[in-house]
Amino acid sequence: MFKRWFTRDPASPPADIWRKARQQTPLLAALTPTEADRLAERAWQFLRTKRLTRHAELSNAPFEDAERLAIAGQACLLTLGWSDAEHREAFANVHEIVILPESFTREVEEMDEFGVVHEGVDERVGETSYQGPVVIAYADLIESGDFIGFNVLIHELAHKLDMGNSMDIDGFPPLPRSLSAKRWHAVFSSVWEDLNACLEKGLTPPIDDYAASHPGECFAVCCEYFFTAPDHLVNAYPALYELLCDYFNQAPLGRIKTA
């Protein structure tokens, strides 16, 4: 169906399909009419230029048009506040989203503080690389889309933003001219130190402790909270919420009040 619609109206998706995508995705349903219209065009263009691939084991159920559009909408939510040129540049390294049935494992090697390399198996619900596909587990994708502080798609695409100026994630994405690197470093360093201090004291951190595993994961987890639990993030780390408001040029706290 999408090829037919692309030919008929290349500027925006059919209104009924976009309405259904928003209805089944609270993050999208909470947008203002202006935001929703802008995101509809971005998501439609995303589907025209990026690949969405489902594993063969998921082929027994149809890949509904509204489901595709909801996925594209959540992806483009990250860049909604940026110009069209900034949006295209930010996602220049996004080529394909691959959806697997369940979580998957990877063999990993990690070096400890003494220089000793440890081998192990890591279970993941998502992963990506500099020019590689965004791989996510369907079981976790269907749990995303609401204001619950978790969104595997936003997490992995935040890594793509992070790698906009580097081939590896480091928690330091390209910044707009209006945002200083000094402020970014100061705010995230404070969050990082607080997370690790909580863990050292045996306390539960105010956000998912996975954020304390690596600076790049800290950025991605904080992006998840910014879009899907902004009330929690602003209470835990108000300076971080304001920083991300300036970075994304969005204020999602107002959306959760209308959700």
Rank of each mutant, 00 (worst) to 15 (best):
L27K: 11
L27H: 11
L27A: 12
L28K: 02
L28F: 01
L28W: 00
L28I: 06
A29M: 03
A29L: 04
A29P: 02
A29G: 02
A29N: 03
A29V: 02
A29I: 02
A29R: 03
A30N: 04
L31P: 00
L31S: 06
L31Y: 03
L31G: 05
L31M: 10
T32C: 05
T32N: 08
P33Y: 09
P33G: 15
T34D: 15
E35I: 06
E35W: 08
A36L: 07
A36K: 04
D37A: 14
D37C: 10
D37H: 13
R38G: 12
R38Q: 15
R38W: 07
R38D: 15
L39R: 06
L39D: 06
L39W: 05
L39E: 05
A40G: 04
A40L: 06
E41H: 07
R42D: 00
R42F: 05
R42Y: 05
R42E: 01
A43Q: 10
A43T: 09
A43I: 07
A43C: 11
A43H: 07
W44F: 10
W44V: 03
Q45E: 08
Q45G: 03
Q45P: 01
F46W: 15
F46H: 14
F46V: 09
F46G: 08
L47G: 00
L47C: 03
L47R: 02
L47I: 04
R48S: 12
T49R: 14
K50G: 09
K50T: 14
K50C: 12
K50L: 07
K50F: 01
R51C: 11
R51V: 13
R51W: 08
L52P: 08
L52C: 10
L52S: 11
L52Q: 11
L52N: 10
T53P: 00
T53I: 14
T53G: 06
T53K: 15
T53S: 13
R54N: 02
R54H: 04
R54I: 12
R54W: 08
R54Y: 09
H55P: 05
H55R: 10
A56M: 11
A56V: 12
E57I: 09
E57A: 14
E57S: 12
E57H: 08
L58I: 08
L58V: 08
L58S: 07
L58W: 05
L58Y: 06
L58A: 09
S59F: 09
S59A: 15
S59E: 14
N60C: 05
N60P: 00
N60I: 11
A61Q: 13
A61W: 09
A61E: 13
A61G: 04
P62S: 14
P62V: 14
P62R: 14
P62I: 13
F63K: 01
F63S: 03
F63V: 06
E64D: 11
D65R: 11
A66I: 03
E67Y: 05
E67W: 02
E67G: 01
E67S: 07
E67I: 03
R68A: 09
R68C: 13
R68K: 13
R68N: 10
R68V: 02
L69T: 08
L69D: 05
L69S: 06
L69E: 07
